[in-house]
Nucleic acid binder design. Sequence first.
DNA 1: TACAAACAAGAAAACGTTTTCTATACAATA
DNA 2: TATTGTATAGAAAACGTTTTCTTGTTTGTA
Lengths: 361, 361
Amino acid sequence: MIEKKLKQQKQEQDQTEEKNNIFQVAKLSGVSIATVSRVMSGKAYVSPELTNRVKKAAVTLDYHPNRSASSLRKRVSKTIGVIISDIENPFFTSVIRGIETILYDSGYSLFFCNSDEDPKREKTHLSNLRAEDVAGIIWTPTKYNNEFCKNLVESGIQLVAIDRSPGMDHMDSVTVNNRKGAFEATSHLAQLGYQRIGLISGPKQTSTSIERLEGFKEAMLYHNLVLDQKLIIYSDFRQTGGYRAMQTLLELELPPKAVMVSNNLMTLGALQAIHECNLKIPDQIAIVGFDDMPWATSLQPSLTAIAQPAFDIGTTAAQLLLERLKDPTRSYRQVVLDTKLMVRTSCGSKKNLVIKSIIET
Amino acid sequence: MIEKKLKQQKQEQDQTEEKNNIFQVAKLSGVSIATVSRVMSGKAYVSPELTNRVKKAAVTLDYHPNRSASSLRKRVSKTIGVIISDIENPFFTSVIRGIETILYDSGYSLFFCNSDEDPKREKTHLSNLRAEDVAGIIWTPTKYNNEFCKNLVESGIQLVAIDRSPGMDHMDSVTVNNRKGAFEATSHLAQLGYQRIGLISGPKQTSTSIERLEGFKEAMLYHNLVLDQKLIIYSDFRQTGGYRAMQTLLELELPPKAVMVSNNLMTLGALQAIHECNLKIPDQIAIVGFDDMPWATSLQPSLTAIAQPAFDIGTTAAQLLLERLKDPTRSYRQVVLDTKLMVRTSCGSKKNLVIKSIIET
DNA sequence: TACAAACAAGAAAACGTTTTCTATACAATA
DNA sequence: TATTGTATAGAAAACGTTTTCTTGTTTGTA
């Protein structure tokens, strides 16, 4: 008997402290849940009087519509997924900041994933995001993963590829003119009079890496310089990789007089190797990096580098995605942003070099 | 005619590629949806045979349970929110990586927000995350925001504060022993014989900044060094701030012989200012940074710095949160991690300094 | 042999929304 | 007056899960 009473009491308590859902609001304001929903979303005919009552009740109860239920019913959530291949790379960090800025303004939340350049991890993340019912995904493809992302596209999720070309036309993408950037960096060295120019390249499969390599080769050709395969080292876009690559270059019987490094982290490694050999920059070796970084100006000498519009890549990608969500039939766009050569002191000046070459010869 | 056929074909395709939900799997494997659910979650009696059939069907259809539906039914979402004050700071980047690593392993998704050190933005993010029904939140508090986060705690969301003390006991937190770190860094300089030691400090209100300042002062006292208020500059934890602060120090009639910089970005700025004045490190000025960074070893000379276990802060915070989600009644923990002095060459060696001081006097 | 305990699996309810369907009332038009 | 249209709002269905309830079927034990 007492037990029964207790149970009843408990139930009543549950009722009062029950999470404030749409029923509570409906009850308090004396309307149906449909009306509450209509008031909350604000896109249907509801009389001013009821609107008022509902709004008041919602405030009183501190009611916030459950997003899971909403997503489930609407079959789309106000969230977008972002898959970044290396969160510790400042380049991607700026990209994320760009994305976040735009999404924040338009009321979207951001699911963040780090793929660590691992296609398996990437796939898991993509699956999760799909299960999460995200409205769209912005990602850096680790590989030409055609079948899988074709699948995704067909499942109705909008994708925007950033930084790397996904290797398919029917997708929005935001990339950088890597070829042109690499061409400019290499030309800069050539114009300063350097002839034996080395390249620390990224992985052979990654599109950014390939394009930068092409730009390098084109520039060498354009300036009538010898393309010595020994001076091209393929590495992994990571600091230790750049370190080892530079060591390899410096151990050659005829090491390069200048070197272009294909991304920011490898540049750090390369610098480390140069310093360990006690070589003077730019007198003994000139260096130009791909991807400008906050620390570039803090180096001694400051680093000449190709600046990528990382923040803009992020904002552009986010905007592209939002546009597509508004109009899914829109034709696909491949946006290519320009790089900018930031000339500082790590390559020396022409005058410098002329003197140097006189001494050398 | 052909058009009609195409349309029909399309419809058929739609039918086949229809979102694979639990019913599809049930149908294909010839069991009830309950059984499918049981197999997927793996925590109920299902015969090996049916288990097999279901698993096979799930793989065939590439079935992934809908997270919204699951969250709705289970009344708990498998997501946690992360609010970072400055995504472009590599320190926080490592923290995020730590968090992501743990969450990935336990199947949680991560809502990412960037507060940009703006309390208003922070509040908006916190509200959004609550509306999003996240299971918990990991954040870097921008200010002692007591009333609001008290509110949040009461609404049942689990909070873990990182990097900075939130100024309240009833909350899990992961911070770093800033005082000890600053003490060690300063002591390092003192032990090398430096006497006029400057400090580029962070904002006066931030807890990390305050603690590092305290550590600095304690070390000065401990080593019987004069604490000259002119040598303490308060700045903003940003690169340009560090740059200006260092300029201010160098313009003094009696500039410091060594300086400790209270965070990584300001260190970059300080280095820039030093290079612009053509001062030799460490001969003319020694520098020790708070927060070790990838570029520290690439500098010439390499930077001596206090390393913070950024990655560990992330993993610890995530683990703390997961534990609390499992057992919400657990008592609150304040974890304080240790820093580590990474001695490189930017402060010189004792021998060096002795010689230098002989020459100077 | 009887009966409880454990195993197995389907039916159905529940989670909190959004939206379609339906039913009013009332004004405007023919 | 009859009819159409529109504003308003409730009832009910639907979204895709998880879990309780229910019903059998084995297995083990007294």
